[in-house]
Amino acid sequence: MNILVSPNPHIHSKWSTRSLMTDVVIALLPAAICSVVFYGWREALVLAVSVLSCVGFEWLITRCLMKQRSTICDMSAVVTGLLLGMNLPFTTPWWMVMIGALVAIGIAKMTFGGLGQNVFNPALVGRVFLLVSFPAVMTTWVGPVHFADAFTGSTPLSSVNEAILNGTPVTEITSQYSYGSMLLANLGGSAGEICALALLLGFVYLCVRKVIKPWITLSIFATVALTSLIFWGIDSARFTDPAFNLLSGGLILGACFMATDYVTSPMSTLGGIIFGVGIGFLTMMIRYFGSYPEGVSFAILIMNAFVPLLNRWCKQKKFGRA
């Protein structure tokens, strides 16, 4: 028999999965709207295809393969679809988005037994599958349509990665991006990465609604800041500075919405902090020393695999015993 390992809200709260997931969708909306404003109708198409196909595949699999009542009403497929869509470049063709949705829902979620059983974050599995399968499309970023002159075809992180390989000082690259513009509108990158402020807004909303606890996210930010501070302090020509690392790439999206996924993150606070530190450290190692410019998704997936161990190790104390 399978024992469902799930965090607190499932046990003792009045909240249902559905209301929690609806809150996540609301929290993601500002960033989604921002990305549509910046990138235009093609971004809207990617998001719509992603959400619709995730829900569609979940319905098909539960009804036709598992012969059960479908679980699409719990909104979790909508969240997966939205996150997947926000992790892809807006130039992704519609059929590619559908393959990503099939991998996310079919392989990463339903094969393991559906919501609550999956080891890895479905949206990230879908995204990494596409990244590995179609690297040319997935790593060719086009700048937002509203910045015609910023039409660089590369993200701040990929330019830095190239500079490191070329041996040119990274400060030449980082000086091109002001922190203010990165906070408001990242230059190039996937949709969900574009507006850090909108993402943080959603994160604050989730924390205020007590949908998520902030520990995981905060420990990721702290670890990324600390790790990059140390390396930047050692050699500022080779390594990028903490603020750049916090604001660039998919770090905010990943830390706020993907790492905090209920099913695939540890249950206890201590476990969550260790989980966050692991993600932050791995992200920085991949960014500094890896061949991929961005490592947040890989870092989260790797730490996902450790969650059962962390849950065992940091077991919550039973009531009545200190």
Binding site: T111, F129, V132, S133, F134, P135
Partner: peptide, 19 residues
Amino acid sequence: EQYQMLAFVMAPGAFICLG
């Protein structure tokens, strides 16, 4: 060429297909 899913030629694809 643009429709080929490279993941399946690599190790993860082997595990997924075999499963």
